[in-house]
Amino acid sequence: MKHLAIALTMLLAACSTAPKERIVTKEVKVPVPVACKVDIPPTPAYEGDTMDLSQDIFGLVKGLLIEREQRRITEADLRARLVGCAGHPPDT
């Protein structure tokens, strides 16, 4: 009877122990906002700022077309900097 009580006690003690919990480390990627640090380029000297207004119409139009292309290049550079800072291209 004594052996039966010991066996029953050991059996009940074995059932009452909880299994050990495993610690699992998981890597979770969370986006963190960061300040966008972009150098602002200096304002370029456009062709229209230095044009001689006493030129003939063909010279003036040529200068304005050059200025137009300069402005397109500057705008493309600023847009590229903005897209790099925002992370996605703007809807156009």
Rank of each mutant, 00 (worst) to 15 (best):
I73S: 10
A7R: 10
V28T: 02
H3I: 13
T17K: 05
P31S: 03
R72S: 01
S54N: 08
D39A: 11
K29F: 02
A18P: 03
A13F: 08
L53D: 02
E75V: 08
E21C: 07
I57Q: 14
A86P: 03
V83H: 04
V34S: 04
K29N: 12
K26T: 08
G48F: 07
G63N: 13
T43E: 15
C36A: 15
R79C: 00
A18Y: 10
I23Y: 03
S16G: 13
I73N: 09
Q70A: 04
Y46Q: 03
Q55E: 01
L82M: 11
D49S: 15
G48W: 03
F58D: 07
L12Y: 06
V32S: 11
K20N: 11
E67K: 05
Q55I: 00
E27Q: 07
I66K: 14
G48L: 04
S16I: 10
T43V: 15
T9F: 13
L64F: 12
A14G: 15
M10Y: 10
K29V: 08
T50W: 07
M51H: 00
A45C: 03
D91S: 14
I23P: 01
D56V: 02
R68I: 01
A5D: 13
V24N: 00
I6N: 08
E47W: 01
E47C: 06
T43L: 13
G59T: 01
P33Q: 10
K26L: 11
Y46D: 03
G84D: 13
H3F: 11
G59M: 06
A86G: 07
M51N: 05
I40A: 06
S16M: 14
H88P: 01
D56M: 03
D77W: 06
A5E: 14
L78H: 10
T74Y: 04
P33T: 14
R72N: 05
R81P: 02
V83Y: 05
R71V: 07
L82E: 06
L60K: 03
K62Q: 06
M51V: 04
E47S: 15
C36E: 13
K2M: 00
P33S: 15
C85A: 06
A7C: 12
V28R: 01
E47F: 03
K62C: 00
E75N: 05
R72M: 09
G84R: 10
T43P: 09
L4C: 13
L82W: 11
R68H: 12
M10P: 02
T92C: 10
G59S: 14
P90Y: 01
R22Y: 04
R72K: 12
L82N: 05
C36G: 14
T25Y: 06
M51S: 02
M1P: 05
R79H: 07
E21W: 08
A45N: 01
P42H: 06
A45V: 15
H3Y: 09
P19W: 03
E27T: 08
R71I: 14
I73D: 09
K2G: 05
S54P: 00
C15R: 07
D39E: 12
L78E: 09
P44C: 08
L11T: 13
V28A: 09
I66G: 01
R22E: 13
A76C: 11
G63W: 06
L53T: 05
D77S: 13
V83M: 08
R72W: 04
M1F: 11
V38M: 11
G84V: 05
